[in-house]
């Protein structure tokens, strides 16, 4: 089955961890992930600047590692990301900000990418709330 996965919650929320484990299980089960789309506070899961305490799960780092190693299409909504300070080098330069913090493997793009993924996938699975 082809899945599109959308995440709306922050990386410290159980929803972000559940989405990650679901995505891992989908691939392990032989399914395809057409796209991961991070929106609302979910954009923070694509930040490279999150520092989790050493004895706690670093969900954002796991996300970056997961999509890079599985070579998945990871899209972060650009409008939601700018509003929350998640920038790639181009946006940091465009808006005169001192640093880029979008983690490796992610791409900033528009909401059209969510709709396109929802059209291509057999199932759109959303993770929000807590």
């Amino acid at each position: 089955m082809k899945f599109a996965i959308a995440l709306f919650s922050a990386p410290h929320s159980p929803a972000s961890r559940r989405a990650l484990r679901f995505a891992e299980a989908a691939l392990a089960g032989g399914h395809e992930i057409v796209r991961l789309f991070f929106y609302q506070d979910g954009v923070h899961s694509a930040s490279a600047n999150i520092v989790a305490p050493q004895d706690e799960l670093d969900t954002a780092a796991e996300w970056s590692h997961f999509i890079a190693s599985a070579q998945l299409d990871g899209v972060v909504c650009i409008a939601a990301a700018l509003r929350r300070g998640v920038l790639d080098a181009r946006e940091a330069e465009r808006h005169g900000r001192p640093a880029a913090n979008l983690a490796q493997g992610w791409e900033l793009s528009g909401l059209g990418q969510l709709h396109e993924a929802a059209q291509q996938a057999d199932r759109l699975i959303c993770f929000g709330g807590h």
């Binding site: 929106y39 609302q40 409008a79 939601a80 509003r83 528009g110 909401l111 059209g112 969510l114 709709h115 929802a118 059209q119």
Partner: peptide, 30 residues
């Protein structure tokens, strides 16, 4: 495929309401 967007946030509780509308508007644009 059709999409229903369920908007549960009040207009002044943060960007949630605006961001739900943005999904609807983007879908309409396509």
């Amino acid at each position: 495929r059709s999409m229903l967007i369920v908007s549960r946030q009040s207009p002044w509780s943060g960007p949630g309401a605006r961001e739900a509308l943005d999904i609807a508007l983007a879908g309409g644009a396509y």
